[in-house]
Amino acid sequence: MNKLAKVFVIAEHMGAMQELVSGAAQLGESTALVWAGDKGQAVGADTVYYLGELNNDRILEHYAPSIINLVKTEQPNLVLVESSRKGRLMAGTLAAALGTSVLADATEIIIDNGVVTKRMVYGGAALSSERSSAPTTVATVSPGVFETAAAGKAANLVEVPFVAPATSVKCRERKTKAGESVNLRAAKRIVAVGRGFTAPEELKLAEQLAAAIGAEVGCTRPIAEEEKWMDKARYIGVSGVMAKPELYIGIGISGQVQHMVGVSSARTIVAINSDKNALIFKQCDYGIVGDLKNVLPALLAQLGK
């Protein structure tokens, strides 16, 4: 594959940073990491452009003008940005300052007469292949696109001068979220719950099934975002976790594309739903039409035997 001359990485979390730095090395002759926060963590790229500390006085957003300045001066061919919330904001801000758009949520990146990415559109019903031929292309990259390489060399560190933002955003407080850590992307078996569950107590049934077969529990977006019964890290689909389990059991889930695309590569899909016309039955290997409040206890009882 052709390589670009210069590829930059902007990331805020260690894991994504390592993935993107290794991706940058695949795509570019020279690589640079643009980093704020703990200086010691920034390794792997040929150059580290160090922005400064992260604290209440300086959140990542405050470094946007410095980053824009740096990118305009250095003119990398491609900037790979972590697809976190802050990464997305930075990507859009930077692209707009460069007069271009963002190749968003790339699940694949190749160099072919410009930068060509694939991404899901229409909630996962289709894959769109998009090309940017901007002098500097900005792309946000989905997790798992690049393998993390072995820990890299200590880089040449360049301190980036701070350019003060013109608008005023003051950070008053930063609280760590209580959220649990769960990696559904790596789960081999998933029991997922949807809106067919009408009270949080009912989730126990799904948890028991998961425990019985050694599965992780996942859910649909409304269970996490609207009901808030489960951590957001547990919702599966185009805007959540793209999982690749061997076995997926969807319970009380209608089977809309935005969710199902997150498990479409599962070897076996099992569905439990009270509506025999539910979309999920068209996409499952085994299904049972029934009320989850009856099916799950019965299933658990027979499993125990």
Binding site: I59, R85, S168, V169, T176, K177
Partner: peptide, 13 residues
């Protein structure tokens, strides 16, 4: 703002 691992409270002009 609700981010992946943290909540930020900001004052915006």
């Amino acid at each position: 703002r609700t981010l992946e691992n943290e909540i930020e409270v900001l004052e915006v002009t």
